[in-house]
Design a binder for these strands. Sequence first.
DNA 1: TGGAACTGTAACAAATAAAATTACAGTATG
DNA 2: CATACTGTAATTTTATTTGTTACAGTTCCA
Lengths: 139, 139
Amino acid sequence: MDSNFTIAVHSLVYLAYLPGHMASSEAIAHNVATNPVRIRKVMSALRNEGLVKTKEGVRGGYMLGEDPGKITLGHIYEAIARGALQPDWQTGDPKCGCPISSNTQSVMDLIFKEAEDSYASFLNQFTVASVLLQIKADK
Amino acid sequence: MDSNFTIAVHSLVYLAYLPGHMASSEAIAHNVATNPVRIRKVMSALRNEGLVKTKEGVRGGYMLGEDPGKITLGHIYEAIARGALQPDWQTGDPKCGCPISSNTQSVMDLIFKEAEDSYASFLNQFTVASVLLQIKADK
DNA sequence: TGGAACTGTAACAAATAAAATTACAGTATG
DNA sequence: CATACTGTAATTTTATTTGTTACAGTTCCA
């Protein structure tokens, strides 16, 4: 999977950490170690879910859309990475006569969907606030 | 992630499906819709975990190493895809003064490891035999 | 006993996906 | 109205995934 989920978590934790709870894409990009355009794209996806709020124009930037203790990693995952666990490439050939070759795709599809639900719900035990605490405690 | 896990599951289900429970890399590759070399690589990894047995030489190929009902998808995942859930790319810079930038990597690392454990254990509810049944029932 | 049918790998090439860059229109602020 | 921002599209660069070729080693059996 791509790193958008990690970037999203890092960015939100960074916002939670800052006194003003606000930063520009450039400041976030610097902390995350990537480029501002990428941060803006990630933030756009988070904004659609209400996880951040945007302020355009001079002295604009991003701020948390909710209390850090209310934003779970599962929610972040759903907002930005849904489907990332399943490989794009599929095995078999749906038009093939063999039932294994033709049906494995749809069965694996279902298994991946269920597994991803379980993954996202596992991630719900973490919040931006709890990750921030872990990071502060980390030596 | 790459598709090795899906290929592994498909291959083992295919072996379980065949009357003789045995097939060459070429036959498996054809069913999976990939090339024989790739199947051999996947099978090598599965062999290290005892999930398949190999027979070299004429009329050789691969056969199941255990009862299809005993092989769980979690075990297959561990054998071939451990670590695939975590992106290679990491955020932040461990040498940076800011605690967020420098510690997010190790904290996310731990979260991904735990999440992957939970993912693999979710997959343990499925076996090669149960997937085969699902595939046969699929219309 | 030697050629055919296999696996095991390594090395390389092609295709695809992820990340970075560039560019520019739109928006608030002072 | 110049400046400092976001939003997004287009493009380039880089990394990863997949496929191919090549060949040594193993077993079978004619």
